[in-house]
Design a protein around this nucleic acid. Structure first.
Length: 491
RNA sequence: CGGGAUGUAGCUCAGUUCGGUUAGAGUACGCGUCUGGGGGGCGUGGGGUCGGAGGUUCAAAUCCUCUCAUCCCGACCA
């Protein structure tokens, strides 16, 4: 087969870029740092949305939509929040263009300057809490549990398709609660939703944990995260859920009267995942032949490629194929019969492999004769010839098996790439030679964390939620520690 | 914003050092044909303001000046 991708061992990030382009997921646009998501890539995102949206609704949330533009003054109301985002904001200063009087095309009309500049949202806490102020007076108005599907803009210096783009698509949940405990419970519920989604649908094992103060969301009291491990041994933060305390309620003066008649500030959470999940999905399973998609999120789960020479043969093959198509559709399996005569079978094989379609059937005159089909599975690249009779049942089971298999593979990889270390020297050695997650003791201070980051580029990905307590000494300072934390070099 | 590099066909690039026919290749695209069980073969055709502006010269993709854009490496980040 012709090589179209750079191999992972040769250059991992080149491989990733090649793959995104060649699998027709996305491409760079005319706008620096912003991508065009192509139909095949968008179809995967739609599947992600569909599943998550269901999960959000099942946990009591509703969708709504808030403005893209946020008045500049809103940002300054929560101090740490503005610190976190100020350096990467797109700002709208004018509202009109005009013809250049000197004839050099079109220019910004200097008379159309806005009284107050508008910020293109990098996240929506401020606009939403300024709105919640009007919605909340009494404990009877709580909780409010809203999600929005939207685009946001963060003016990043360096961008990469899906992993970091100036504009990206995401969902952001914003909830308001009576009590601290209720808000914390919500934060935990949502990180669990994300973890379940990652593992069950993306077939990607994730570590659940809490961020250190240093890595926390700007304006949060606690940030919960799911961290996935990519094939190059780097970590990818895949979703976050923030306990915001009363910070935004205080900033926007959102108070309610409690049952006891007391005036109190509202407790808040926010949580989100973005098109970055696409990057995670791509990197978690794919190989040097292309994308490997988990069946539960694949836009096409089964593709049928006809092989024929004469019109008559095509007719016979089509008949068999259409029979299989209708049976698979009845079972709610997404199937495509690729009867495009303009592409050759060999071309199609390579193409669908590149696009990560989990199961491929090839049907030719030989199969029509013998009552068979050739079945190829993407995850193992195995091919076999099986009877056409009952093929739909077989495929149904196989899709589950593939989903299971790629999860297992990713899980085993992560296990193999997770190392416990007890000294800083060992830490550096493992980091350099093996990468992956490193479990080590840390004294809990910002200084030590910063020092490790500066010296090794590794950061604390999280303090794991399900980590068992273990007395130990910080690998750097020797001060006491009660639990190991997870280090890795991150995207 | 610091350091490095690159702009030539839809895409990937050669040609620039040392100026000189009609600016090339691979791939993609069109047509014809043989084909078809892993990105096919042969034939043939179309496609270029050589990033832009100015300059030097009999002559500029090539030399000079300015300019625009993009990419890579750092600081920053979902």
């Amino acid at each position: 087969m012709a090589k179209v991708l750079t191999s992972r061992s040769e250059n991992y990030s080149q491989w990733y870029n090649d793959l995104v382009l060649k699998a027709d997921l996305a491409e760079n646009s005319a706008v620096r740092g912003s991508m065009v998501i192509k139909p095949y890539g968008y179809a995967i995102w739609e599947n992600i949305q569909k599943v998550l949206d269901r999960m959000f609704k099942d946990t009591g949330h509703e969708n709504a939509y808030f403005p893209l533009f946020i008045p500049k003054s809103f940002f300054s109301k929560e101090a740490s929040h503005v610190d976190g985002f100020a350096k990467e904001c797109a700002v709208v200063t004018h509202y009109r263009l005009m013809n250049d009087p000197n004839g050099n095309g079109i220019i910004v009309d200097p008379d159309a300057k806005l009284e107050e500049e508008l910020i293109v949202r990098p996240t929506s806490e401020t606009i939403i809490w300024s709105t919640y102020k009007n919605w909340i007076q009494s404990y009877r108005d709580l909780p409010i549990k809203i999600n929005q599907w939207a685009n946001v803009v963060r003016w990043e210096m360096r961008t990469r398709l899906f992993l970091r783009t100036a504009e990206f698509l995401w969902q952001e949940g914003h909830t308001a609660h009576e009590t601290k405990q209720e808000a914390i419970d919500e934060t935990v519920t949502m990180i669990n939703v994300y973890a379940e989604f990652a593992e069950k649908y993306m077939a990607m094992p994730v570590l659940k944990g809490v961020k250190t103060e240093n890595e926390r969301f700007a304006g949060a009291l606690d940030t919960y995260t799911i961290e996935a491990l990519m094939q190059d041994g780097k970590a990818l933060q895949s979703g976050t859920s923030h306990f915001l305390g009363q910070n935004f309620a205080k900033a926007f003066d959102v108070k309610f009267t409690s049952k006891e008649g007391k005036e109190e500030y509202v407790w808040a959470t926010s949580w989100g995942v973005s098109t970055r999940l696409m990057g995670a999905l791509i990197m978690a399973h794919s190989d040097d032949n292309g994308l490997v998609l988990p069946p539960k999120l694949a836009p096409i789960q089964v593709v049928i490629v006809p092989i024929y020479r004469k019109e008559e043969e095509f007719k016979q093959v089509s008949e068999v194929a259409k029979g299989i198509v209708s049976k698979l559709r009845d079972m709610n399996i997404e199937v495509k019969f690729d009867d495009n005569d303009k592409k050759k079978p060999g071309w199609k094989f390579a193409e669908y492999e590149l696009k990560g379609v989990p199961v491929r059937l090839a049907i030719g005159p030989r199969d029509v004769q013998n009552g068979t089909v050739e079945l190829a599975r993407r995850d193992t690249l195995e091919k076999k010839v099986i009877p056409v009779e009952g093929v739909e049942k077989y495929i149904q089971g196989l899709l589950d098996e593939i989903q299971e298999n790629i999860y297992r593979k990713a899980f085993d990889f992560r296990t193999e790439k997770t190392t416990k270390v007890d000294s800083y020297d060992e830490f550096k050695k493992v980091l350099k030679e093996k990468g992956g997650f490193i479990l080590a003791h840390w004294d809990g201070t910002n200084e030590t964390e910063q020092r490790i980051k500066e010296e090794t580029k590794a950061t604390i990905r999280c303090i794991p939620l399900d980590g068992e307590p273990e007395e130990g000494k910080c690998m750097v300072t020797g001060k006491p520690s009660k639990q190991r934390v997870v280090f890795a070099v991150a995207y």
